[in-house]
């Protein structure tokens, strides 16, 4: 860890990935602040891609994700991948859990009620914005049959078996199509 003094005289600390992990495992509050500053935007982006049109709920999930990172940091194993990969999967899982929670399901039902029409326009604009960020955006470049499966697997959290049943296609086909879709996505990542 090295300490830099900025021109304004405000000390800011930067960490190497290794130092950061050590400090996080020591439950260093400053390190968690740094973690938030560096990664909250990327994590918030994925949360918003899953939890569409509900900024308040997305913020709550983001907070839950950081608390989970704080709680589970000891179980993070560097040999199994980068810190970011680990955190992003926590964010994705927390979002999927929220989507599946009873309270969220109920709120969705309520929004389908006819007396809730004003929300329609708002809904669409947010939808468009969300489609313009991150993975959602490059997903547009895939063929429909690939895109739908990645949507269900990555953004809705369904297992391959569930998708096969839902879509009425063989499990083997689901697996192959998702693999092929991911290979294509890799080439679109810049």
């Amino acid at each position: 860890m090295s300490l830099y003094i900025s021109n304004l005289g405000i000390p800011t600390t930067t960490y190497s990935e290794q130092d950061l992990i050590v400090a996080l495992k020591e439950r260093n509050e400053q390190a968690f602040g740094y973690l938030y500053d560096s990664y909250s935007g990327a994590l918030y982006s994925i949360i918003k891609q899953l939890i569409i049109d509900n900024n308040e709920l997305a913020s709550d999930v983001l907070q839950e994700v950081f608390i989970n990172i704080w709680r589970k940091i000891d179980s993070y194993d560097q040999t199994k991948g980068r810190l970011f990969t680990w955190m992003l999967n926590i964010a994705r899982n927390a979002s999927i859990d929220t989507l599946r929670s009873k309270s969220y399901q109920n709120s969705q039902k309520n929004q389908e009620l006819p007396d809730n029409v004003y929300k329609g326009g708002n809904n669409q604009t947010t939808q468009v914005n969300i489609d313009n960020i991150g993975l959602k955006k490059i997903l547009e470049k895939l063929k429909v049959e690939h895109r739908v499966l990645v949507e269900l697997a990555y953004f809705k959290g369904f297992t391959h078996e569930e998708i096969a049943e839902m879509q009425g296609i063989p499990l083997g086909t689901v697996k192959t199509r998702i693999r092929n879709a991911l290979i294509q996505l890799r080439d679109y990542l810049k």
């Binding site: 602040g33 938030y36 500053d37 990664y39 909250s40 935007g41 990327a42 994590l43 918030y44 982006s45 994925i46 918003k48 913020s59 983001l62 907070q63 950081f66 991948g81 980068r82 970011f84 990969t85 992003l88 960020i133 991150g134 993975l135 955006k137 890799r186 990542l189 810049k190």
Partner: peptide, 20 residues
């Protein structure tokens, strides 16, 4: 992993300071 992280950071959206 590095490509994935870079892509995610490029596509970050500002997170609420209140959450921090």
């Amino acid at each position: 992993e590095e490509k994935w992280e870079k892509f995610a950071l490029q596509n970050a959206v500002p997170a609420p300071e209140m959450v921090k």
